[in-house]
Design a binder for these strands. Structure first.
Lengths: 121, 121
DNA sequence: CTGTTGGTCAAGCATGGACTTAAGTATAGG
DNA sequence: CCTATACTTAAGTCCATGCTTGACCAACAG
């Protein structure tokens, strides 16, 4: 649970639409900083700042060769987010299943409706 | 592609550690507002504000009965985020596969890499 | 009724984050 | 060497967001 820090960074990074749009571009292949900047209505400097956030969170990886920095996706960063989400959903759905089972058992002895329904007072 | 708005809301909502911690709590079962607030070092009002963000993004669902509002996870919200992530990762990994195939073909005929590669000075 | 609990609303503050401009560095090309 | 390219860094602006306080309201207990 020490990667809570990382999870935090990753989700924070994903929380920005511009950064996500850069990620969409990168998911179709590596790109240089200025290639990434071109379709955006942002300064190059701003793009660089976003890239720093993305790299620090581990979502992308960059390498500078000559004077051009090439960025590419590092799926293990995204996988962290995916795992977090899956864990929450699994927990929740398993809970629903167990609950369903209990209700099913009850209906054998008591004349209750099958699903989880509430009455209005 | 009109749910870009929704995707934005969901990721923004997930971008906050306090909100995620509430989601962790909720993934183990529904809870009232004050139950959610209790383990956090936040005012009740602040918690309520976070809950509004979470509900508007579709990640949770809340229902008020009497004077207590009960919150529960709505997995379809999280599923939206999961899908976005999966799509990016799939695209990227498929690309890597195709690239691997190309390289494999090339190594049969030519011992040189095809594309623009530079040496480090 | 009164008091308490559980939650809501409305300002307001204060910090952080996104962006910009501007100046600087290093590399490629002629 | 000179210039253009491809970033990089620093500094400052500005707005969104997170949080607090304080007043308020509705439901239930006694």
């Amino acid at each position: 649970m020490l990667d809570q820090q990382r999870v935090d960074q990753v989700f924070h990074a994903l929380g920005d639409a511009n950064r996500r749009s850069m990620l969409e571009r990168l998911s179709r292949g590596p790109a240089s900083v200025s290639q990434l900047a071109e379709p955006m209505s942002l300064t190059l400097a701003a793009v660089v700042q976003h890239l720093q956030v993305l790299e620090q969170s581990g979502i992308i990886r960059t390498e500078k060769v000559g004077r051009v920095r090439t960025c590419s996706l590092a799926p293990q960063g995204l996988r962290l987010a995916e795992r977090w989400i899956n864990e929450r959903m699994n927990l929740w759905e398993r809970r629903l299943d167990r609950l369903g089972d209990l209700l099913a058992e009850d209906t054998q002895s008591e004349p209750q409706p099958k699903k989880h329904e509430r009455k209005k007072p």
